[in-house]
Design a protein around this nucleic acid. Structure first.
Lengths: 218, 218
DNA sequence: ATTACTAAAAGACGAGTAA
DNA sequence: TTTACTCGTCTTTTAGTAA
């Protein structure tokens, strides 16, 4: 088991952004232990590839490696999971991009339209707004699937079947909208599709690349 | 040293919000250890007051206590420190409220006005926008004091002295503004005061109780 | 099946020491 | 002063057992 507690201490000393000069004795104080243990822990962290060290006569220069940052970030996300789970909404951040226009095709299907009107309480503008979520929001977005949301049921037309999914009431800068999470999608998980009663691009005066914060009600 | 790793596992199993049923064997799997160790760790956490347990014939019901949640939250904030320190901006979330109007009084003082114009690059609308920050943002707001920001120097008039503080360039929905952090203030730490060149309430079409997200440049 | 004891095995710690 | 050995001690873990 890797000593993430020590790694965290190094991160709090800002070793993620710049090399920090540290002696075993100094580090022993911040982990409330002996210099021997401190020394050994730094050795171990280096062997495991979580930190890089350069020894000098009166101590060592330490940086946290890419792997080290990764494992800390994973830990951070676990705590985010714990403490965002208690909220009844979640803010997702992403940049606007233009999709391939299939949103429009699907939205034109009566089987979907009826459900959106009935279950979301608005007639959707024929086209979706697509966000490219940042790393953190992609994680949070995954949590959406654990919530029931508003179920959209799949159906069959003469030609093909249309899959189900679920929606969540949402807001962007006070504009009502809804995110739609298809059960199966061609999009990668960092893409978020948004429905709204109006043409959001105009209402928000937003263009491709703009950063958008959307508040999703759970 | 308390076994926060085990406590975190329990939190991820949702023991913060409801009692979860768990046997030592099941828990041993999630902490990758033996049932004996799992059993002992749960005993210890209970003795330390971090969890509550009710034993039943085929396992035990576990909830995380108030103290347990507190220690986890502390851990969470440390990770927030680590991972929000790398950004050059921070998003604060709060609800709009109407202050007592002293903002207007202070803004009318020439000693402040001159500095705002010179250092912020705009002539402030005579009145501040006040946000009541949520819990998480209040923590983040405290971090602002660690940054230098734009210094506003105190001065004396004939009658009294006016204290110093600092400002940060900010944006609310693309509207330029600035938060002002007085060195000493009568407001509690969950209140954020905002300056802008225009009457933001009108520009944003916002009213008391509306949720506002402000991006503060560090 | 549980929980939780005891006792042996494994591992972590820190004093002493060398470089 | 450092880092990082060795080695005795203490702590933690797990197997075995009882309830």
């Amino acid at each position: 088991m890797t000593d993430i507690e020590s790694l965290k201490k190094l991160a709090l000393l800002d070793a993620m952004h710049k090399p920090i000069k540290l002696s075993s004795h100094e580090f022993s104080i911040s982990i409330s232990s002996s210099p021997q243990t401190a020394s050994r822990k730094l050795q171990t962290l280096e062997q495991e590839g979580y930190i890089n060290r350069t020894m000098v006569s009166d101590g060592q220069w330490i940086t946290i490696s890419k792997n080290g940052i990764e494992i800390l970030r994973k830990e951070y996300y676990e705590y985010q999971d714990i403490f965002t789970a208690e909220r009844d909404y979640v803010d997702l951040v992403g940049t606007l991009f233009t999709g391939l226009g299939e949103g429009q095709y699907y939205l034109a299907q009566g089987g979907y339209l009826e459900q959106f009107e009935e279950k979301l309480g608005f007639h959707p503008f024929p086209g979706t707004l697509n966000l490219n979520l940042n790393e953190q929001s992609t994680i949070l977005r995954r949590k959406l699937s654990e919530h029931t949301g508003i179920e959209i049921i799949g159906f069959k037309s003469e030609d093909r079947t249309f899959g189900g999914g679920k929606c969540f009431h949402s807001k962007i800068r006070d504009e009502n909208c809804a995110v739609i999470i298809p059960d199966r999608t061609h999009y990668p998980p960092d893409v978020l599709e948004i429905l709204a009663p109006d043409k959001l691009r105009e209402k928000l005066d937003a263009k491709d690349g703009d950063e958008i914060i959307i508040t999703v009600m759970l």
